[in-house]
Amino acid sequence: MYDSGKIITGLLVFVAIVSFPFVYSRGTNIVKPEPKIDTPVIQQMAVKQCVQPRAFMRAEHMQLLNDWRDSVVRDGNRVYVGFGGKQYNMSLQNTCMHCHSNKKEFCDSCHNFMSVKPYCWDCHIAPKENKS
């Protein structure tokens, strides 16, 4: 192999850079986020049920919101028939956040953990949270 010295040094540098995040965070105590649903509205609900079952919402909420958005803005259809045939007004600000009025403890806790920064809140107004 020609230039083996340079190639091996290069590979070592590459491996070092790629593995840096893993090495760096070794030993730090990682707390899995627990999004909270103890808002006043949810507490008053007899059956604590979102528009779809929890597992679905956890995995698909981003795609669901995308589809809601297109349905409302582009097709003018605002009613969503959710889990158990219940009807909802498709609105992030007025439906989702009505129940989940604790954006910091609900949305942000997971998003920050996963380091995703959805730009929803550039336009949509987050609910006023009671300072606690």
Partner: peptide, 15 residues
């Protein structure tokens, strides 16, 4: 597939 089916959306009745 997208999670929202066409049959799951409808216009609001009061529109």
């Amino acid at each position: 597939r997208s999670p929202v089916e066409a049959s799951q959306v409808e216009p609001s009745p009061d529109a």
